[in-house]
Structures are given as C-alpha cells and as structure tokens.
Computed example of a mutant assay.
Amino acid sequence: MRRPQSATGTAPAASLATLWQRFSHEHWLIAALLLAIVVMVMAIVPGLTRAVQAATTTRVDVVVQLPPRDALAASPGTAQTQWQTVKVAAGQTLGQICANLGIAMADVYKLLDYPGARKPLTQLQVGAELAFDIGDGGNLRAIRFDRDDSQRVQLRLDGDRVDQVVSQREVQTRVQVASAEIRSSLFAAGAAAGLRDATLLELANVFGYDIDFAQDIRSGDRFTVVYEEIWRDGEFVRSGDIVAATFVNQGREYAAYRYAGSDGKLGYYDEEGRPVKKSFLRM
C-alpha cells in the first residue's frame, strides 16, 4: 500500500508557488534595479577611499638658520641714529652745548640759517631739551627741538641741504586750585600748597600794585589761586597763566580775574571791572 503524503510536506512547495504568482512584472524590475544600485555602490566606495588616502597632506618640518639680529641691524649702508639729549641749564648757549659734545659749528650754522630755526635755537629756555644725532666722526647729522608746546621739529643735514620734519604733539591745559596761609614766606607757603615758583612770581606780579611783597607780607596772610598747567604726552611742561586769585593781606582782601578787554587783550580786573594792573606801580 502507498503511504499517503503528509499535508505538511506539500505546504512549502505550495507557498513558493503562491509567492511566485503574486510577484508581478513590475516587482521584478524594481528588485533588479535595487540590486544594480547595491553593486555600483560596492564598486565605488573602495576607489573613493583610495583617493582620499592619496590626497592626505604630509607635513615636513624644515629648520632654517637666520642671521643674528645684530648682524641685520649693522648691515652695510644703514646709518644708525645716535641721539644725545641735553637739558638746557641756566646761562647755557647753543654754542656751549655743541662745544661740550664736540660738534663742529659749521654744521650748526647751516641749521641756524634754515627759516624759523634761529629763534628757538638761540633763545633757549632753562629746562628745554635739545637732541643731537651725531655721526661716528663727530659730524652733526640732525638736531631736534620743540618750537612751541605742540610742535617738535627735526632738522636733518644732507650735505648743504636741510630737511625739516614737524611732529604735532598733544597738549593739555589743566586748571588747578591751591590755597595757602603764610607762616614764614610766600614761597614756603606756596611750595607747601604744591605751587611752583613761576606761579608764585606771577601771583606777586598780579597784585604788585596793591601789595608790596617785599615789605607788606605778614604771617597769617592767605591766598587762593586758580591757575593753568601745560601738560604734553602725560608729562608736565610748564606753569600756565593765573585764571583768578584772591589775596588777604593784613586783613584786607584783594581779587583779580583774567578777562579779555575791549581791545581783545587779556588782563586782570577786580570785582568792579577795574584793571588790577595800573599804569604805574606804587613807589
């Protein structure tokens, strides 16, 4: 007798047949397209990886020996400036300063003939600074000085030719106030209040008609002064003008205010508008 086939033995074959029948022609086209894409990607990726690896930059460190900095600074044909700065002392002249530095006056005369140079270089103020660029042989190559509070001038010699360079400098005017009571002298009281001699001399000049500062000053006299200071590049340059001041001498108060008169000139006037400085001083 033949053994009947089991139902479970025919089930897989029937399932495959059913699945084959369900796939349409379009389904097989989509499957083939996906398979082709997978094959192409697998072929491209190894080549792309090799290209990236080939493009990798290789770093190479190279050590270059440079000449010493001093050798560069001392290269032939480069003139090195050798500035020497001198602060003018009382009674000193340009000729004396140049003689002390060993500078030939023939070079100095060339600079003095330059327009605008003679006055500031021959009318030297105490404390003014002069700078000289002197060559190895003692020849004067350039001079530098302040024409005024805001202009610094450099005159450089090139044979018989003089070249000028003017630098503008920032100037500040600061207003200060100081008060003091006299115990021994005007200058001692002023110094204790931080006033410089130039401001004290100007104070005595302002009230010189009403007060004899040689004979009338007494212990207990007091004063207040509003004054200007000139500063440049953060450094004190000089004392400026007095703006206003009061002075109590032997119990009597005097006042002075700086004001431009009808002629435009600055002068000092009292509280009533009368000039403090008269046409003549008291004898």
Rank of each mutant, 00 (worst) to 15 (best):
F145C: 09
F145A: 00
F145H: 02
D148K: 07
D148V: 01
D149Q: 11
D149H: 09
S150Q: 13
Q151R: 02
R152F: 03
R152C: 11
V153H: 10
L155D: 08
L155Y: 03
R156A: 10
R156D: 04
R156S: 12
R156H: 05
L157K: 08
D158P: 14
D158Y: 12
D160L: 09
R161M: 08
R161Y: 06
R161H: 07
V162E: 05
D163S: 11
D163E: 03
D163F: 02
Q164I: 14
V165N: 11
V166Y: 03
V166W: 00
S167Y: 13
S167R: 09
Q168N: 15
Q168L: 05
E170W: 07
E170Q: 08
V171K: 13
Q172I: 11
Q172Y: 05
R174Y: 15
R174M: 12
V175N: 14
V175F: 03
V175Y: 06
V175T: 15
V175P: 11
Q176Y: 10
Q176G: 08
V177P: 06
A178K: 14
A178G: 12
A178M: 02
S179Y: 04
S179L: 13
S179R: 08
E181I: 03
I182D: 13
R183W: 09
S184C: 10
S184V: 12
S184M: 03
S185G: 07
S185C: 09
A188F: 11
A189V: 02
A189G: 09
A189S: 10
A189C: 00
A189N: 02
A192T: 07
A192E: 07
A193W: 03
A193E: 00
A193Y: 01
G194K: 02
G194E: 08
L195M: 00
L195T: 05
L195C: 01
D197V: 09
A198I: 14
A198P: 14
A198D: 03
T199K: 09
T199Y: 07
L200H: 00
L200V: 05
L201R: 14
L203Q: 15
L203Y: 09
L203S: 06
A204L: 11
A204N: 08
N205S: 15
N205Q: 11
F207Y: 02
G208S: 15
G208M: 14
Y209M: 06
Y209V: 14
D210Q: 12
D210V: 11
I211C: 03
I211S: 01
I211V: 06
D212E: 05
D212N: 12
D212R: 01
F213V: 13
F213D: 01
F213A: 08
A214W: 06
A214R: 04
A214D: 06
A214E: 12
A214H: 06
Q215P: 07
Q215C: 07
D216K: 03
D216S: 03
I217S: 10
R218Q: 10
G220R: 08
G220M: 00
G220V: 12
F223M: 04
